[in-house]
Amino acid sequence: MRAHGFPPGVINGPVAVKLTPQDVEHIAHLARLEIGAGEIDSVAAKLSSIMSFVDQLQAADTGSVEPMAHPLDMAQRLRADEVTEHDQRDLFQRNSSAAADGFYTVPRVIE
């Protein structure tokens, strides 16, 4: 994997960022996403093409530009520290296929 791609001025060139099957396995693990063994190569090829495409940003001159996290110039609103939600646990747990006695069940994590 490499963070820098095209030299400035070169746009839409050939595949400049190449993700290996090992890269894909690493990212997929970080994302807790299973990718079938048979799909890894095609996923690597498509991700390489996407990353090569977005890599043309490296040519943009963004030297002193302030990063923009949000489209409107607004500050995070605060609210009064008051209880506004009531307990709806049973209602919410109806959407889980593995809830019992008010708990969510998962495979054993502590031996």
Binding site: A3, V54, Q58, T62, E66, P67, M68
Partner: peptide, 16 residues
């Protein structure tokens, strides 16, 4: 290792 090169760069481009 990639945050600055991609995500931060994109946030700056967004400003442009």
């Amino acid at each position: 290792g990639y945050y600055d090169a991609y995500y931060l760069k994109a946030q700056k481009a967004r400003q442009l």
